[in-house]
Design a protein around this nucleic acid. Structure first.
Ligand SMILES: [Zn+2]
Ligand SMILES: [Zn+2]
Ligand SMILES: [Zn+2]
Ligand SMILES: [Zn+2]
Lengths: 165, 165
DNA sequence: AGACGACTGTAACACTATAACAGAACGGAG
DNA sequence: CTCCGTTCTGTTATAGTGTTACAGTCGTCT
């Protein structure tokens, strides 16, 4: 099942991760240039930290890293940087985990679904279009107008399934 | 759009709410009888409190109510009762809100999607089958096996849309 | 230089959740 | 009925998550 670099669920296949992060960082810089946000040192470093793995990190975990590198050591330092990244589509917040993960496909204005492996904690971002359509149907039947949707699936990833066999 | 008592999104239509809660309470009692759980006083009262409205309540909000009625006043009292209800399918946890809501259709083993009105905080439970199917497809493309899914939509309900017009 | 807004840092606090332990209540075996 | 193991309730204490308020800094524009 693995071996589709850059594709859906690439996080769950062995791959050269430095590509993921350097590309995401480039895309981010580019996007902010056109959109008008400043990627200051704390913010940039926060994004780099999130990009180190396909995992979600708690705000305090990020904060520890930042503090160790000479940035502020109070919660707002991390929360502000993370909020900035989320607002500009460079990171996502995972409700189930109270945690944040870097976005690996910035550039497109997206509202993805997430696959969360309960064994290894790796995260993958997948398109949520079909689900949003299905939900829109059900919702409009109830006279409800959907604004934002959270879709988060917990399960077992390809790597862990393989390992267990 | 309103006027479909008991149907999908009934929470967003004017209705005789005492029906909702008494029926849910009956179903709950019945379900526990066959399944083998004890609906003790704290647990029953917790369920009743959740059933008072189609809103989600924080654990501490529930706790205040319980304490005022002579039950314990420490967090575990509320968290344990709520956990019991969730485990037996009599209530649900809303990840986006860090809050809990009574289940209005116990009896079926379901894993619903939620519609959350950002204006009035009312909650509706809708079937998530189509979405789970759609997600399953995408996930299996990535070699991911889905276990549990969280679907929570934030938007505007029929009542609030009406009121604004 | 001076004024302004956006950014960073701190202290203090609020909210959410769990761990660990002691006593009470229940239910079955003898 | 009594004893015993289990489940339930309550407590204290602590861990984890997130926000408010305020002060100083830095870049930018006039
Ligand atoms: Zn993304
Ligand atoms: Zn895994
Ligand atoms: Zn339900
Ligand atoms: Zn509403």
């Amino acid at each position: 099942m693995p071996e589709n670099p850059d594709g859906i669920g690439a996080a769950f296949a062995p791959h050269d991760h430095s590509h993921c992060s350097s590309r995401a960082l480039n895309d981010a810089t580019e996007r902010l240039a056109t959109e008008g946000g400043r990627l200051t040192p704390v913010r940039r470093r926060t994004l780099e930290i999130l990009l180190e793995s396909h995992r979600a990190m708690g705000a305090y975990e990020v904060l520890d890293r930042l503090a160790a590198e000479g940035f502020g050591r109070q919660p707002p330092v991390a929360y502000r940087a993370l909020e900035f990244l989320v607002q500009h589509g460079l990171a996502h917040r995972l409700q189930r985990l109270n945690a944040f993960a870097a976005c690996l496909h910035p550039g497109a204005d997206h509202q993805p679904a997430f696959l969360i492996c309960s064994e290894c904690d790796r995260i993958a971002e997948v398109p949520s279009g079909p689900m949003r359509d299905a939900l829109g149907d059900v919702a409009s039947g109830a006279g409800f107008v959907v604004d934002r949707v959270t879709v988060e699936a917990v399960g077992t990833c390809a790597i862990c399934a393989e390992a267990r066999a």
